[in-house]
Every structure is written in structure tokens, then in C-alpha cells.
Amino acid sequence: MAEVVLEVQDLKVEFDTYGGVIKAVRGVSFNAYKGTTLAIVGESGCGKSVSVQAVMGLIPVPPGRVTSGIVKLRGNNILGLSHSEMNKVRGKEIGMIFQDPMTSLNPTMTVGKQITETLSVHEGIGRGREAKKRAIDLLEKVHIPEAANRVRHYPFQFSGGMRQRVMIAMAIACKPSILIADEPTTALDVTIQAQILHLLKDLQRENEMSLILITHDLGVVAQMASEVNVMYAGRIIEFGPVDDIYYRSQHPYTIGLRAAMPSSEEGAKRKLQPIEGSPPDLFHPPIGCGYFDRCPYAMKICESNEPEPFLVGKNHYSRCWLHHQRSQTKLTDFIKQDTKIYKNNEIMS
């Protein structure tokens, strides 16, 4: 296995709100390795963005706070570093592409100026002609047409996908050794998306960059990731190599998620099957399994006891009581019954 560059252990994040304390991230651990891609997928609102914001030291305090956890960059803890120390890590060591371009771009500054600012802060190159040339090169790299003219424009003059690409250009400007990309291609059509993903893979090869990719697009995950974290209600509920997650998924949530996709078979028009119910209230997170309310296989024990991660394959873990060796219910029983949904799921018995 490649070298670990980022290690996250037992991360917990809360927010104070008018209605009470929201436990957004409830103990998340993962490793990111040199030269590989780790994908994070999961229900909308399950804590993906908050987790990586905590890694970057970007949780607004108050109302937020990190209540526990260790974040190690090449062995050194970076959680709780001072503002100025963290500023050195951000951009140069760890690059970040934010989910929401408009909140991270400055609306009052031209796109070119924003890129040259980043370059001058982290690489010390002046704000003159050389920086401007680098900015144009970067915009060309992310396929902005007529980059030389476009550097003079403001973010509002760009389309949604063009803004997203400006952020990508800024994040890769300093060739970071870790790139955290939070939904980097949601506003891109599939041909530009393919080019951007290609660019990220090239950077990964050149600098052995570690990529942490948050996305809802299971096609993009299939194309990019070597390992996948599946999150639900503030927790990682399944983790494994990409093939295991796609062909041998073990957690009922992951299985439900995959069943909700429209089938790619020609002419398929069956009604889409969302997972019934809604995620738990994070003001009062469940003491048992977070998926209990919605799980078709739930057992008595699941309500008040949270399962530990069970090893279900090589380097493949699932947090579910069904994997307990003495569980009376086995996932395989269900899988045989509903062959349409689980067709690709060659579960090991």
C-alpha cells in the first residue's frame, strides 16, 4: 500500500443552532494515500462537506466546533493549528475545491486577479506579467475558451460550470500534494467533466497527488476512485475498494442507494425507487444504528446498539448487525428474493 499522507481519526463536529445542537459528524475516520483517489459518497446532509471542512480548519467557530478527533498530515497533527499556520497548509499542501463556487469566489474581483492572488500568496511570485500568464495557462487547462480575454471578467459574467472550473484552476495552481474536491464537476456537462477528470488524473500521476473526491455521481466514482467511503447520518457505514462497493456492497443503505438509480438498460422506464423515509434527526442522533428507521432488514438489536465495523471482505468493512456471525437474518436471503435490484450484487455467502 502507498504511503499515508492524511490520517483522520474519530472526527466529531457539532453546530449550535436556534433549535439545539446539531451533531453533524459523529466519529469519522479514514486514511488518504499518496497517488490514489478516495471517494466519499452518501446521503445529502450526512456530513461529507463538514468533515472535510473540519480537516481544512474551516469550521466557523461559533456556531460550530470540533469536539474530538485527530487530523495528521504526514504524521503531524494539524487540527487546532493557528490561523496563520493553517494558511500555510491550505493551498500549498492541501488544495480544496468547494461545493459552492459563489461563496468562495470574490464577486468584486476579476477572475484573473483572484488566481494571481493565490499564486502570489503561496508561491511568492509577483502580481506582474508572469503571474498573469500563469493565470491564463491555468484557465486554459480547465478549458475556458478565450482565456486571455476571460481573465478580465468578473465571476458573475461566467456560467455556473465556468465558475466551478475557475475554482478548480485556483485549487491546482500550487500543485498541492492533497486535493480535496467537494462535488467538483456537478455543474459541468459530461464532455468537459471527462476532460477535467482527465486533468486531475494527470496531476495525480505527475505529483503523486492524493485525491479526496466527494460526489453523488456514482459514474464519476466508478471512473476515478480506488477506495470508497459511504457515509450516513454523520458516520462512515461502509468502506472498501471500489469494486467491492459496486459489485459486492454489503450495507443496506449502500444497496438501497444503488437501487435508486435509473437503469441504463434501453427503454427502462420503471418508477425510480428512492429509499423510503428520511434520515434521522441530528439534534437527537440515534443511539443504535443510524439507518434503523428506514432499514428493511432492521432487527431488535439495531434500535439501541450501534454496530461496529465488521470485516466483510479484503479491506472491506460494513457497520451492520447483519454481518454478526450469529445473526439469524442474512443479507443473502433478501438478495435472492429481489433479483432485479441486486442483479449486480454477487454477495459472498
Binding site: E43, S44, A187, H216, L257, L272, P274
Partner: peptide
């Protein structure tokens, strides 16, 4: 575009 596939469905 910002929703998981189950919420999309």
C-alpha cells in the same frame, strides 16, 4: 445536481 441518487429519485 447536488442530491444523492436516492433523493434525486
Amino acid at each position: 445536481s447536488a442530491l444523492d441518487v436516492s433523493v434525486q429519485a
